[in-house]
């Protein structure tokens, strides 16, 4: 068993330090890159918090849709193939809901401030 603090706590501490202490001291292109870096650290903490739950739910939906079990990436490959071949499409019960939920779960980690995502959260 690894000791505390947790990865999330460590990353948050580093990101907060960079945000509060270093950003005000940096100018020009490196200031831009620093903000990009801090955003990436924030993304990692969101993934650590959300990934397990959303992956499990996604795998469950894929099992239902495909009638098979397997690793998440293999299930996604199988679904991709079926869509490419036209064996499933938007008329297939559950497909649209699955794609929407999966995509919303990705945006919650990648870009929760993306305007389309915020609009769709409100539309739910």
């Amino acid at each position: 068993m690894q000791d505390e603090p947790t990865p999330t706590e460590l990353i948050k501490a580093v990101a907060d330090f960079l945000r509060n202490e270093i950003v005000p001291q940096i100018k020009g292109h490196n200031a831009f890159k620093l903000r990009v870096g801090i955003n990436a650290l924030d993304l990692v903490t969101r993934q650590l918090a959300l990934e397990q739950g959303s992956d499990a739910a996604e795998a469950e939906r894929l099992k239902q849709l495909l009638g098979m079990d397997g690793a998440l990436i293999d299930l996604n490959r199988a679904l991709s193939e079926k869509i490419a071949k036209g064996e499933v499409d938007l008329a297939t019960p559950g497909l649209a809901e699955h794609l929407w939920q999966t995509t919303m779960d990705k945006l919650a980690v990648d870009q929760p401030n993306y305007a389309s995502y915020k609009r769709e959260l409100g539309n739910k």
């Binding site: 890159k33 990009v36 870096g37 955003n39 990436a40 993304l43 995509t103 919303m104 990705k106 945006l107 990648d110 870009q111 993306y114 389309s116 995502y117 769709e120």
Partner: peptide, 15 residues
């Protein structure tokens, strides 16, 4: 790093 981060913007186009 900047390219890594753009990689994680792919989901914007999915939505």
């Amino acid at each position: 790093m900047e390219q890594a981060v753009i990689g994680r913007r792919t989901s914007e186009t999915e939505i």
